[in-house]
Design a protein around this nucleic acid. Structure first.
Lengths: 363, 363
DNA sequence: CGATATCTGGATAACGTTATCCAAAATCGA
DNA sequence: TCGATTTTGGATAACGTTATCCAGATATCG
């Protein structure tokens, strides 16, 4: 046994070296065990594992990062206020739970911070990135995706070669929303979407607008109306007031996302209009608050869980070596609730669970 | 000028060495500039900074982690659904924006994952941790706090020596809620709090309960009622149904937190009761959704922004070397809205902004 | 049974940064 | 002007891990 003089170990930090000495093997051998690498006998492996367990050893991600992987996946989230995002995260975690990977989330408060967050993730040698509803300018994006495996959620770019995307079929979702409103008897809907400084043509909101427009045009409404507003309650309220008290007031409103539709709902009620009798409202995402009685919001479901799972799977595949791009699109569906019900089904059992509608019409 | 033979640089990666060569100085000198360390002339410094800028150099956090700091602060968040947390994060970011520190958030989905997230942060050599509404078992906590600077938000432990805490005065907040309900004419309130497997005596929910109990007892209500329920809509609804359809139904409900009170609101309305006429509802946190017309929820404000700022400041101080513990407590206040208004002030200007009430009574 | 292939374990050299020194240069004080 | 002090810049040695070898041991095959 190779017992060194046992110098006065000044620090108690357990490193791979401590483990190696304890197990009576070399440092590289322990490393191989840690990485499930080839070249260790079952006997040696179990001895090492025992030592690791006994010494409570945990490898340093910093040191690992200098040569190999950090087993860290970065998630970039635009904000924490959108109630749809948690569901995506759940899906991601469900897949990653079985793996040695850990996720750390960068929360983009102010727009423009995306770059610095992504850079921070690069600096920290993360093994991959999942970006939710965010995209960098094309040049930066290319740089990032070439630097590490990247999956983007909620941004359509089916021709992208260097990264994967996972999306709901937002064009179709927009159509479903429009068709549902018409089907419920509304004649004069307006879609309310978000104003953004960094409009990217293929972002989800744009596609929902496009789907909405096509469906209404197909139904004979020549000039489908769409307005934009910042996503703060005050701005939304001002916009809605302008619409409802202006000329040709709409009888239905389509909010581009749930958290947004909830603000619309607030504004409509604040102005004294009844939902759904005076104004019908439909959102997008079918997030948790939709089913609260006070909201009772019809919405387009896009299964965040599945989107999250697919994103995580794709990222693992990329980390595993895949280089061809994969672009996943999931199917949306309408979940009807009181906000488009004309007669509010407050006392029906269906109220809290929502009722599914079939797809009214293909493109 | 010390120009090496310029070997076929096989990789384009810009390291501290590249910068040093480019600026014509040694590697340690560049390092000093990066850390604002003593021992570099203004001239050398500016030359190095120019090179950094020109080469677009970014230091590797992994390499840094092996010797010095990683300039990374870990935030541990219980979940992303509570609308109060984003406000805390805003406060934290506001302080950290001026510094070289980056925050990465670990989102604890399932309870019990806290340990693995904190471990992941330790493994990644983070410089400090802010834990929100979470705490490890005392032994683990001691270990973590001795390993790196730690600040805990939303957990009271004024005697803790190894970490700082930032809290609202939840005892007082509980009293304010109770007093407000009485003041509005409600006679028979019930507090609805959350069931937890890991009840810690000094956690915020417990203190709110205690404050609520004391205030009611002081007002002559001998046995203040408190019930607990899991924080899922279905469970809350069942609990509320049980209360309102049972013996001695309450005329007011105090939800331990806003996101919870919103579920209570949903349940109460689903059962056909009017708010605030039949049942008054008050929450805690004064988060964004409170001001939505459909919620119009009275709540106890605890200024998440300030809590976040203080937490970040304390952590920076600890990273800077402070070792004595500091425990900050902020003052709560009532923000009255329609849900406890008896007459819902839907058309008043006060509806969306809420009206502040003075502190009804000291302890 | 000898030659060859496979398996196992370790020696060695990075990875990119910072901490700790130390020597030379510049500044200061009398 | 000369020694004493301060400032500056760099040489050197880590930090904890993994990748790339290579040699010895073991298994396989004709």
């Amino acid at each position: 046994m190779k017992t060194t003089q046992s110098a006065p170990k000044k620090d108690v930090r357990v490193t791979i070296k401590t483990v190696a000495e304890h197990a009576g093997v070399s440092v590289p051998t322990v490393s191989k065990v840690l990485r499930n690498a080839y070249g260790v006998s079952a006997k040696a492996r179990s001895r090492v594992l025992a030592s690791i367990d006994q010494l409570q050893y945990r490898p340093s991600a910093s040191a690992r990062g200098m040569r190999g992987q950090t087993y860290t996946i970065g998630i970039v989230m635009p904000d924490v206020r959108n109630p749809f995002f948690p569901t995506i995260l759940e899906g991601v975690e469900a897949v990653l739970a079985e793996t040695p990977y850990v996720t750390l989330t960068g929360i983009v408060g102010k727009p423009g911070k995306v770059v610095s967050i992504v850079n921070a993730m690069l600096d920290r040698q993360m093994d991959g990135i999942i970006m939710i509803g965010q995209r960098l300018p094309p040049e930066e994006m290319k740089l990032v995706a070439s630097a590490l495996p990247t999956v983007i959620v909620a941004h359509h770019e089916p021709d992208a070669l260097t990264f994967d995307t996972v999306n709901n079929d937002d064009l179709r979702g927009g159509q479903l929303a429009a068709d549902h409103l018409l089907q419920q008897g509304y004649k004069n809907p307006v879609m309310v979407t978000i104003t953004r400084q960094d409009i990217v043509r293929m972002d989800v909101d744009q596609l929902r607008v496009e789907g909405y427009r096509r469906a209404l045009a197909a139904a004979g409404i020549s000039v489908p109306r769409v307005v934009a507003s910042a996503d703060m309650l005050d701005d939304v309220t001002a916009t809605i007031r302008h619409l409802l008290e202006g000329e040709d007031p709409p009888d239905a409103l389509f909010g581009w996302a749930d958290y947004y539709a909830l603000e619309i709902l607030s504004a409509v009620r604040a102005l004294g209009y009844r939902v759904p009798e005076d104004v019908g409202i439909i959102g997008y995402d079918n997030s948790d608050p939709c089913s609260y009685t006070q909201n009772d919001l019809t919405s387009i479901d896009q299964s965040g869980q599945e989107i999250g799972r697919r994103a995580a799977q794709l990222l693992l595949e990329r980390i595993g070596g895949r280089t061809e791009a994969v672009h996943v699109v999931t199917e949306p569906k309408v979940v009807g609730r009181g906000s488009t019900g004309r007669i509010p089904p407050l006392d029906e059992a269906a109220a809290s669970n929502g009722a599914e509608f079939g797809s009214p019409q293909a493109i």
